[in-house]
Design a binder for these strands. Structure first.
Lengths: 136, 136
DNA sequence: AAATTATCCTATAGATTTAATAGGAATTTC
DNA sequence: GAAATTCCTATTAAATCTATAGGATAATTT
């Protein structure tokens, strides 16, 4: 299940991508337009800024803005920052790999093989979609 | 992230599918072989029986056994029973549909469109894999 | 320089879900 | 009727997610 954090983050990014100019948009406005708790959104945007997706400006006329062109931002990168691993089990994760402590062998694990296929199929979607596709 | 319930359930089903005969296998044996808490596994097998995947027999020589041939059991059905919705958001779920209360319009929702693609890609994997493929 | 506006940051509380355990009831076999 | 095994419900423990609180910091305006 997609977390609210990810859902809200995606909506906020899409909202910013759909803006005409590059002027900063205030948290309050995004929150209002997208029906998101303002304080919660605040922390999400902060993490998107710290991970290099957004820039910000303080004071009057301040707010958040996209740093890159929407079509340069891959969904793989966004999803990994917002939701974490794309894989459903750590033992098939490319970026968050971890060994399962209950499995003696990955090669012979029935779950491992299936989840590898699922991960690959999800990756293909995320790799072929950018932030620009979100607002098409 | 895949729940332990699903992971254990898949392993148990795969274990049963890999048995030669159709004699019941005891919970205790499956739990031991697959490193699963016996009590937890007990409740998982129970739910798999109630949903028609397993049969059971009580008393000495009892245990659980598969009802259908492994290749007749689609992963879509197993996953829906163990993990719930295949979709990452209820608004794109085929079997567990729910309207999002924060979205005014599904058609214009950026998250909706993306998650539809992700769901379809996962569905394709699950539809093209059966329990038999898990032990190949 | 003071007031205003808006992000920045940390901590924490509340809610929900997941994982695991407990304990006995019911049924079958021998 | 004793032993073995599943059946069932309830409960606890742990983890994670969601949201809120409250002030610090920085930029702009007056």
């Amino acid at each position: 299940m997609l977390s609210k954090k990810t859902k809200y983050g995606l909506k906020a990014l899409a909202f910013l991508a759909s803006q005409k100019g590059k002027e900063p948009v205030q948290i309050a406005e995004i929150a209002k337009q997208e029906n998101i708790s303002q304080k919660f959104l605040e922390s999400i945007l902060l993490s998107l800024r710290k991970t290099g997706f957004l820039g910000s400006k303080k004071g009057k006329g301040g707010g958040y803005y996209l740093i890159k062109e929407p079509k340069e931002v891959l969904m793989t990168d966004i999803m990994r920052v917002l939701e974490g691993p794309i894989a459903m089990v750590p033992c098939v994760s490319l970026n968050f790999y971890e060994k399962c402590d209950d499995c003696p062998s990955e090669e012979n694990c029935s779950v491992h093989m299936l989840m590898l296929k699922v991960r690959d199929s999800a990756l293909e979607v995320y790799r072929n979609n950018t932030l620009a596709d979100l607002i098409a």
